Computed example of a mutant assay.
Amino acid sequence: MANWLVKSEPNTYSFEDLQRDGRTVWDGVRNNAAALHLKAMKPGDEVLFYHSQEGLAVVGIARVSKPAFPDASDPTGRFVAVELEPVRSLKGSVTLAAMKANPALAEMAMLRQSRLSVSPVTPEEWAAILNMAGDA
């Protein structure tokens, strides 16, 4: 199993929306590097859900419930989507500032390439974030 991080603007689609909906198609990703990460996701992989623009924090955990399939919102047919389902909210949110201040996260893909909306998370980074959230 692999771990990932996805970003969403909470005023567009929040973790609370995912919890209410029970699952969602994660589509609309048009960055080639982020799209490659979507293609690598497998059912059962866990995903940190990060609120961007507002909040700037990891707030929950989701799970990949359906692997990559053609993104219906892409008229070119080049990009893919995955399906996500909620797992749980974190006990405490982990802010971007806190992540940047943690030396254990210095090489985290999301911090090095901040414009990526989908990025991998190493097991060590995953453990550090859960510890910071009080979920360890």
Rank of each mutant, 00 (worst) to 15 (best):
K100V: 04
E107N: 11
E83F: 12
V87C: 10
R88W: 11
G77P: 14
H37D: 01
M132A: 06
A133V: 03
A81F: 11
G44W: 13
A57T: 02
E46H: 07
D27F: 01
A62P: 02
A57F: 03
P70Q: 01
A57V: 00
L18D: 00
A40F: 12
L5Y: 08
L84Q: 06
L38K: 02
R115N: 11
A97H: 08
E54N: 13
P67W: 01
S93D: 09
M99R: 07
R115S: 14
H51G: 10
V6C: 05
K100L: 06
L111M: 00
L56G: 07
A106V: 13
R20E: 11
G28Y: 11
E9D: 12
F79I: 01
A35C: 00
A57L: 01
V29W: 10
N3H: 15
V25W: 05
K42Q: 15
Q113D: 14
R112S: 02
Q113H: 14
L116Q: 04
A97E: 15
I129K: 09
Q19N: 12
A40R: 15
T12D: 14
K66W: 09
W126R: 12
A35S: 12
M132N: 10
R20Q: 12
N31G: 03
A97P: 04
E85R: 04
A128K: 04
D74G: 01
A33H: 15
A72F: 08
K39S: 06
N3A: 15
P10T: 03
E83P: 14
L38G: 02
P10Y: 11
M108W: 15
A2S: 13
P123D: 14
L111Q: 03
E83R: 12
D74W: 07
D17E: 13
V59Y: 00
K7Y: 12
D71P: 01
F15Q: 08
V6S: 03
M132D: 10
A104S: 10
F79W: 12
L111C: 02
R63H: 04
S117I: 10
P86W: 00
D21F: 04
Q19H: 13
P43E: 07
P86C: 01
V82F: 01
K100T: 02
W26A: 08
E85Y: 00
V58T: 09
Y50M: 05
K100R: 15
H51N: 13
M110C: 08
L96E: 04
D21G: 02
V29P: 09
N11V: 07
S89Q: 14
G55S: 05
G44A: 10
D45L: 05
R63Q: 15
D17V: 10
T95L: 05
A68F: 07
A81R: 03
G22I: 02
K42S: 15
P43F: 09
D135E: 09
L116W: 11
S89M: 15
R23S: 13
K100D: 09
P86I: 05
A2V: 00
N31W: 07
I61K: 13
P86N: 00
T76P: 05
Y50D: 02
A128N: 10
E125A: 15
I129D: 11
V59H: 00
A127M: 07
V58G: 11
F69D: 05
R112C: 05
T122V: 09
S117K: 13
W26H: 06
L56I: 03
L38Y: 10
V121W: 08
I129F: 04
V87R: 11
A97Y: 09
E124D: 14
